[in-house]
């Protein structure tokens, strides 16, 4: 549920947020016979196909005839997700989660994950985007392959200080370069 909601909202916002990049006032500008052509050419050349795909999807979800079942629906589900997430904080000041279940993929290993699987372990990191709660990720220990694993520390709204305090405290008791991975298993 989180991934489609996140994608819908972020793509829609992104398409509008990046409408300022039209080649007219700054940045790269491609030639054209008219303003429309200049804008279109500049944006086509200036964004990768991946980004343009996201913009298209975002724009599509914002069309009047699509908003109810796409954008607005995503917003509603987001609210429900945040309400559920907020319940965790009724009994706790901080929620700790692994940032990811695995280390970062090596360059040579990484496939085109553009429209790949969404794994729960990574989706939970989008909860901070949805909720706006203060959230911090830092290295915790090393995995067997020598790469770092991270931990995410999230606090209640406006409790940035608590978040920093806990992160600092963890930093004092765990030296991530020395700590072995079994600590978080």
């Amino acid at each position: 549920m989180i991934a489609p909601v996140y994608k819908t909202i972020s793509n829609a916002e992104a398409t509008a947020n990046h409408s300022n990049l039209d080649g007219l006032r700054f940045g790269m500008r491609e030639n054209g016979e008219s303003v429309d052509e200049v804008m279109t050419a500049s944006r086509t050349a200036g964004f990768s196909s991946y980004v343009r795909a996201r913009f298209l999807i975002g724009s599509y979800s914002l069309f009047e005839e699509n908003q109810d079942r796409m954008f607005r629906k995503a917003q509603k589900i987001r609210r429900l997700i945040v309400e559920a997430y907020a319940k965790l904080f009724e009994d706790a000041d901080i929620v700790l989660t692994p940032a990811a279940m695995d280390t970062a993929p090596l360059m040579k290993e990484s496939a085109d994950l553009r429209f790949g699987e969404d794994r729960f372990e990574n989706e939970h990191m989008q909860l901070a985007n949805f909720s706006g709660y203060p959230s911090l990720t830092m290295p915790l220990c090393l995995a067997e392959n020598g790469l770092p694993l991270g931990i995410n520390i999230t606090a209640k709204p406006f409790a940035e200080q608590t978040m920093f305090d806990v992160a600092y405290g963890l930093e004092q008791i765990i030296d991530w370069k020395e700590a072995p991975a079994c600590l978080i298993k």
Binding site: A16, H18, S19, N20, D22, L24, R25, V35, D36, M39, L62
Partner: peptide, 10 residues
Amino acid sequence: NYYYSDLPKG
């Protein structure tokens, strides 16, 4: 949302 030369943000 619309694109026009006098609309900086788009």
